[in-house]
Write a protein that binds this DNA or RNA. Structure first.
Length: 277
DNA sequence: CCGCTGTCCTGCCAGC
DNA sequence: TGCTGGCAGGACAGCG
């Protein structure tokens, strides 16, 4: 599920039960998710308290009192669930098939990581290792930060021969967009996903209008998604402008177009061929 | 270096 | 109804 808005929502959910809390018990119900757990993973969490829980792109980062950082990624199907209180870990009534990790916190709360497809990950990074981390070190700017502006986008797209859609999915360009919000942002910006990324660039040293529109649209699409998901589990009733709306009329006022689905880099893209150029 | 393809894993749904 | 194939919101290795 998770792109930046869902990960941010997860962070907000975890914060009150993790921040300031100690790991009293850590249960790994299997030896791996996408990759094997680090040797000693549970032991390095045990007894530590969480000083802060942050988000970077689609990654959740929990800073521990030891200085380690617990790095978590939800993959395609990962989700956290919170049982208030110290429910016994072996309480089968509350455990599902794909509950892979259980954190019993001192809050008290029991945090369960469920991930059917097991594309998620949990890793520990030693103090000082964040910026040189293979993935985290290379992440692009936070899309909602001031650092992410038209000048940045134009710079990283310069010379890129790939499609604009593929560029937006590249976490080194901007961190946190996935297949849904890439399509949504492109529709807001009236830019075709098929456009070559390098066309969003600079002219006479200044970012082109397309770069400005795209940055504004990315921020707007993400803020809108974060904001409207305050209510619980609207997930499946979510309506997007273009994502998963093949055949629907274009939602842009005055546009007579119809949303189409195309495949780029083996992923679906949805857009309006009339108003997105 | 760059860009594209295949792959990891399970669940779900459309179509037969 | 039951089966099958295709597809899914991510990331990365490996290839040309």
């Amino acid at each position: 599920m998770p792109e930046l808005p869902e990960v941010e929502r997860t962070r907000l959910m975890l914060e009150p039960v993790m921040r300031g809390a100690r790991f009293e018990r850590v249960v790994l119900r299997r030896a791996d998710l996408r990759a094997p757990f680090l040797p000693g993973f549970a032991g390095r969490l045990l007894g530590q308290s969480v000083t802060e829980i942050e988000r970077r792109g689609k990654y959740l980062l929990a800073t521990l009192s030891s200085g380690d950082t617990l790095v978590m990624h939800l993959g395609m199907s990962g989700a956290f669930r919170i049982d208030p209180g110290k429910r016994a870990v072996k309480d089968e009534a509350h455990s599902n098939r794909h509950d892979h990790v259980v954190f019993q916190m001192s809050t008290p709360a029991t945090i369960v990581f469920n991930d059917p497809r097991r594309f998620g990950s949990m890793d520990l990074i030693a103090p000082g290792g964040l910026s040189t981390h293979r993935v985290l070190g290379g992440l692009g700017p936070e899309p909602l930060s001031r650092e992410f502006d038209a000048a940045h986008l134009a710079r990283v797209c310069r010379g890129k021969r790939t499609s604009l859609k593929a560029a937006l999915l590249d976490q080194r360009v901007v961190a946190g967009l996935g297949n849904i919000y890439a399509s949504e942002a492109l529709h807001r910006a009236r830019l075709s996903p098929k456009r070559r990324a390098s066309t969003v660039s600079t002219r006479d040293g200044a970012p082109r209008d397309s770069a400005v529109r795209l940055v504004t649209s990315i921020k707007a699409a993400l803020l809108y998604a974060i904001g409207r998901h305050d209510d619980i589990e609207t997930e499946r009733h979510r309506r997007f402008r273009v994502y998963d709306r093949e055949g629907a009329p274009c939602p842009r006022r005055g546009c007579r177009g119809t949303i189409v689905r195309i495949v780029q880099n083996a992923r679906s893209s949805f857009y309006c061929p009339v108003c997105q150029r």
